[in-house]
């Protein structure tokens, strides 16, 4: 793959881009799953009807934090993701706010029927945490690197789907998801990824946030790809391209207004996600664009293939999930925009 031979833009470059003061700088690295775990504890401290179901991987999806703090509201449910989801439905229909977290491979893929009929058709106030999202899972390989849950969950009526971009946002999103009423799914990762938002960075379910202003192209990203998009945007300044970066942390319901404003003002869109290109974030955006304002669009994501074992950084390069690929996509879409004028 072409992208693997090029060096990936490193994190330090963002902070040191000459003349530019990036709004977001690297504050460290921590996996979004820890944000989920901490957010859950904060929620549990405030509300005593928040309960958690454990699926024998609590120390890996970080529900163990809640278990330690609130053992009376933690219920081990063994290795039975489907039943844990059904039990969560029963709890929600009894006025509790149940969270069940597992790897997304099981919480979304194995569970689709439970999510569809028991959770969503019931409009039950069930909260699902889907961990180990994306290729950055690393050495566990394809079975655990889930690349399909955005597609699966966003197609379900009544479902809300949140993909936080970093640790801090994951914490906020988890808390917000608990206070929000209705079925919701949060997608988080295993590997430490850049932390760059702060406690006062705006977050709201259903609202995409513009993290960087620009009018030549808009990069709409979710999860750890938001950082890559910011890195790419700083690099692109050298080519005279001023990119807008949008953190689409809620994929369903999609913030159409922010997307359409970007289409109108930038005239070209690039989506970036650690997920199959098909039916993911890019697909959701394309649906809105085609209907309202079909500007040129390019997609960065996994291209209809399974993952594999390896070191997370190696894998992200190999699968083209870096700022380098985003830069290429931006250049391509900007050219298309120029020629379509």
């Amino acid at each position: 793959m072409e992208t693997t031979t090029k060096s990936i833009a490193t994190i330090d470059k963002v902070a040191s881009t000459n003349g530019m003061t990036p709004k977001y700088e690297l504050l460290g690295k921590k996996a979004t799953r820890f944000g989920f775990g901490e957010g859950l504890v904060t929620l549990g401290e405030k509300y005593d009807n928040v309960v958690v179901l454990g699926g024998d991987i609590t120390g890996s999806v970080m529900t163990s934090y809640f278990q330690e703090k609130f053992p009376d509201r933690f219920f081990s449910s063994g290795i039975m993701e489907a039943t844990a989801t059904l039990v969560a439905t029963g709890l929600a229909l009894s006025g509790k706010v149940p969270f069940f977290a597992s790897y997304g491979a099981f919480a979304a893929c194995r569970n689709t029927d439970m999510l569809r009929i028991s959770v969503c058709y019931n409009d039950a106030n069930v909260k699902i945490g889907g961990g180990h999202a994306g290729i950055s899972v690393g050495p566990d390989g394809a079975t655990h690197q889930v690349l399909e849950e955005i597609a699966i969950t966003r197609v379900l009526p009544n479902m809300t789907l949140i993909v936080p971009c970093d640790f801090t946002e994951a914490k906020k999103a988890t808390f917000a998801m608990g206070e929000f009423v209705g079925p919701a799914y949060i997608r988080f990762g295993r590997t430490d990824t850049p932390m760059f938002t702060k406690d006062d960075t705006p977050f709201e379910i259903g609202k995409a946030q513009v993290f960087r202003e620009g009018n030549d192209v808009a990069i709409c990203a979710c999860g750890p790809m938001v950082w890559e998009a910011l890195v790419a945007a700083e690099e692109l300044v050298k080519d005279g391209i001023n990119a807008r970066v949008i953190n689409v942390s809620t994929i369903k319901p999609l913030d159409n207004a922010t997307i359409l404003a970007a289409a109108k003002e930038c005239g070209a869109i690039v989506s970036a996600e650690e997920h199959q290109i098909t039916a993911g974030l890019g697909g959701a955006i394309a649906e809105v664009l085609v209907k309202n304002n079909p500007v040129p669009m390019e997609f960065v994501g996994v291209n209809d293939t399974f993952g594999g074992s390896g070191d997370p950084d190696e894998l992200m390069k190999l699968f083209g999930l870096t700022s380098v690929t985003i830069i290429e996509a931006v250049k391509k879409v900007v050219k298309r925009k120029a020629s379509s004028k």
Binding site: F75, T85, T89, L93
Partner: peptide, 25 residues
């Protein structure tokens, strides 16, 4: 109390209701 129709699901939901009654409420 709940939608059912996909066989095998209702019993898990019912167990969740029983869990809520016995241990939380």
């Amino acid at each position: 109390e709940t939608s059912t129709g996909s066989l095998g699901q209702g019993m898990g939901i019912a167990a969740g209701m029983a869990l809520a009654d016995k241990y939380v409420s």
